[in-house]
C-alpha cells in the first residue's frame, strides 16, 4: 500500500499512545484498590496474628485468637447485637418515613415544597454535635435519654436525610403512569404498591436502606451523647479499646465492626449501580 505524506506519521502511533494510557489506567486502578483494601488488610494482619513486630514484613505466626476471643466475649456480643438492632430499626424507620416523604417531594409540586425539603435535610446541614446537644436536652425531658429507643431516634435524625436524598433520586424521575396502568388493569392499591412501585423503586430503596444502616452503624458521638454510656454499641467498645492500646484487640474489634457493612455493600452492589439508571429504562 502506498503511503501518503500527510504528516500524521510524526504523531505518536496509536498503539504507543494506548499503551501508555493502559499503564496509567492500571496504576490508577491499583492505587484505588490499595486505598480501599489496604487499611482492612492491615487490620486482618494484626487481628490474624499472635504478634506482629518490626522488622517482620508479615507476622511470624498466624492465629485467629484475637478475633475468637472478641467473638466469645459477652461484652462484644452484646454490643454487636445492640449495634445490629439499632441500625436495623433505624433502617426500617428511615424507609417507612422516607418513602412517603420522598414520593411526595418527588412527584408533587406544592407550596412550601422547598422548605419541607430543607427542613428534612437540616439535621445534617448543621454540625451533628450541635443538633445532638439540643436533642440531648429534649430527650432528657422526654425520658428518652439513656435508652435504646432514644439512640434509635437520634440516629434516625441523622440517617433520614440520606435515605430521603437517595429515594428522591428515584421519585424525581418516576413515571406514575405505570401505577395508573396497573390500577386500570384491575390491581388494587396494595398490589400496585408491592408489584409495581417496589420493583420500580427497588434499587433506590436498597441504596437508601444501605445509607441509613451505615449512618447508624458508624455513629459514635450521638450514641454516647444520648445513650449516656448505658447503650453500648460496637463503636463505643472500639473507642474504649483504642485507649487501651492492644493492637490485636483493636484490630479484631475493628474487623468485626467492618465486616457487616462490607457484606451489606457486597449484597447491594448491583442495586447501587442500577439505582443510578433511569426508572423504567433498564432492559
Amino acid at each position: 500500500m502506498q503511503r501518503l505524506d500527510t504528516g500524521y506519521e510524526q504523531l505518536p502511533t496509536r498503539t504507543a499512545r494506548s499503551c501508555s494510557s493502559t499503564v496509567v489506567r492500571l496504576a490508577l486502578r491499583a492505587g484505588l484498590y490499595a486505598l480501599v483494601i489496604g487499611p482492612i488488610a492491615v487490620l486482618a494482619l494484626y487481628a490474624g496474628s499472635s504478634g506482629w513486630f518490626f522488622p517482620e514484613v508479615l507476622p511470624a505466626s498466624w492465629s485467629f485468637d484475637p478475633i475468637a476471643r472478641q467473638l466469645a466475649s459477652p461484652r462484644t456480643r452484646e454490643a454487636l447485637a445492640t449495634s445490629l438492632g439499632v441500625a436495623g430499626a433505624v433502617t426500617l424507620l428511615a424507609l417507612l418515613i422516607g418513602l412517603p416523604a420522598a414520593r411526595t417531594l418527588g412527584l408533587r409540586r406544592f407550596r412550601g415544597r422547598s422548605l419541607a425539603l430543607l427542613l428534612l435535610l437540616l439535621p445534617n446541614l448543621v454540625p451533628l454535635i450541635a443538633t445532638g446537644m439540643g436533642l440531648n436536652i429534649l430527650f432528657l425531658h422526654l425520658g428518652l435519654a439513656g435508652n435504646a429507643l432514644g439512640v434509635i431516634l437520634v440516629h434516625l435524625v441523622s440517617a433520614l436525610p440520606y435515605a430521603i436524598l437517595a429515594l428522591l433520586g428515584v421519585f424525581a424521575r418516576y413515571d406514575e403512569g405505570y401505577e395508573q396502568q396497573a390500577l386500570t388493569l384491575g390491581a388494587n392499591p396494595l398490589r400496585v404498591f408491592w408489584h409495581v412501585m417496589l420493583p420500580l423503586a427497588g434499587p433506590g430503596i436498597v441504596v437508601a436502606a444501605l445509607f441509613a444502616f451505615l449512618v447508624s452503624w458508624s455513629q459514635y458521638v450521638l450514641t454516647l451523647l444520648i445513650g449516656g454510656g448505658r447503650v453500648i454499641t460496637l463503636p463505643m467498645l472500639l473507642f474504649a479499646a483504642v485507649s487501651g492500646g492492644n493492637p490485636a484487640t483493636i484490630a479484631a474489634l475493628a474487623l468485626i465492626f467492618a465486616v457487616p457493612p462490607l457484606v451489606a455493600l457486597a449484597l447491594t452492589a448491583h442495586a447501587l449501580v442500577e439505582g443510578t439508571a433511569p426508572v423504567g429504562q433498564h432492559v
Binding site: Y178, Q181, H195
Partner: peptide, 27 residues
Amino acid sequence: THRRGAVLMFQKAYLFPFLSVAENIAF
C-alpha cells in the same frame, strides 16, 4: 379504578420493565 373494568392504553406502552412479556399480559 381497579374495579371499574375500564382499561386505559396510553401513548407509552407502560409494559412493566421488570416482567417478561408473558408476566406483563398475566398482570
